[in-house]
Nucleic acid binder design. Structure first.
Length: 306
RNA sequence: GGCGUCGUAGCUCAGUUGGUAGAGCAGAGGACUGAAAAUCCUUGUGUCACUGGUUCGAUUCCAGUCGAUGCCA
């Protein structure tokens, strides 16, 4: 498998599609927001980009859930495997492409996740208990690393449900090891910020406000959109008249810059954990990037056929 | 032109009854295996506009200069 990762606005999709054309590739997206139907401009889901000279590059894990749904890493890991096996069986090259660090890691670091069914009785029992007690219970079973686990009762209970189930039902399925060569697109921070700002203006011109209005009019709860973050959060706040257009632009722009930074933090962490990322300078023209990748792959015994 | 107010970290500002200063935002680094575009943690030395004066000592008081702003003419 070939992995293409990078922060937002680094041009991953374009590179992946062109690469796919060279090696009968199919793209598996690693993007936690492009899975949703109707969330297009705000997620940078440009489906037109997948067709090159009239040829369509198959893509997976895009538009697979309705907006408003709460997709998660476990489902992603499962869905990834299905797509991966399907591509393998056709003899095509899987190209894993995206910027959601957690999803990339779930596959590349072979996270141990298992299906945990809902336990109505447990939920009923836990309903009575105060949140503090539930937090203590959870703490005794696993390390907490963020607030989203415990601020909402529903999620807190789900977290406990998972821990309890796993304790009682150890499984022996291991996520398969996938031979993988990883490339990352690298931009100097200031340049990336400029690209993000420019792209944001473009998205607004292209109708991003209307896209969010549309989602709201379809009955998708504003709380969901606020949680989806970035474009969906700030445009919703604007539509709710919580912030002005100017504020929306400034705050959103900054939020995307910060997001890109967090993505880079995650990628560096993946490297520290042992993943070899072959960084490609983002300012190189597309052809140069492809050349660099092909050269690297030819030296790689996994890709002799290229 | 006269009178007043202001000029402090990249930005918005606080403060020092005279002993060289601190918040928010931005920025930087990091954590993160079940909503991850989420969530959370760490991180603040800057000719306190400039030039003089008073003082043991001034960013703080005084005078002047420059800049901003308000009112009056």
């Amino acid at each position: 498998m070939i992995t293409i990762l990078g922060p937002t606005a680094s041009g991953k999709t374009q590179l992946a599609v062109h690469l796919a054309a060279k090696c009968s590739g199919e793209i598996i997206s690693a993007d936690s927001r492009q899975v949703y139907v109707g969330m297009d401009l705000g997620t940078g889901k440009d489906l037109k980009e997948y067709s090159l000279n009239g040829k369509n590059t198959p893509y997976h894990l895009i538009d697979i859930k309705q907006a408003g749904y709460e997709y998660n890493v476990f489902e992603f890991q499962q869905d990834f495997l299905k797509s991966y096996q399907q591509i393998e069986s056709k003899g095509n090259t899987p190209i894993f492409c995206g910027g959601t660090g957690l999803y990339l890691s779930a596959v590349l670091n072979r996270y141990d996740l298992q299906e945990v069914p809902q336990n109505e009785k447990l939920r009923e029992d836990l309903k009575e208990k105060p949140s503090e007690e539930l937090v203590e219970m959870l703490k005794s079973m696993t390390s907490l690393h963020n607030q989203t686990d415990i601020t909402e009762r529903e999620r807190l209970i789900r977290a406990l449900e998972i821990q309890i189930y796993r304790k009682e039902n150890p499984h022996n399925k291991i996520f398969p090891e996938i031979k993988n060569t990883c490339f990352g697109i690298l931009f100097e921070r200031n340049l990336l910020r400029e690209r993000i700002t420019q792209r944001l203006s473009q998205r607004l011109q292209d109708g991003m406000i209307e896209e969010v209005e549309n989602l709201l009019s379809q009955g998708i709860k504003s709380e969901k959109l606020l949680f989806y973050g970035l474009e969906y959060k700030y445009v919703t706040l604007f539509l709710q008249k919580e912030i002005s257009y100017e504020q929306m632009f400034t705050l959103l722009n900054t939020a995307i810059h910060q997001f890109a930074k967090r993505q880079m933090t995650w990628f560096r962490r993946m490297e520290r954990q042992g993943l070899k990322i072959n960084w490609i300078e983002g300012t190189l023209p597309l052809e140069g990037k492809l050349q660099q990748i092909m050269l690297h792959l030819k030296q790689d015994h996994n890709f002799k056929s290229l």
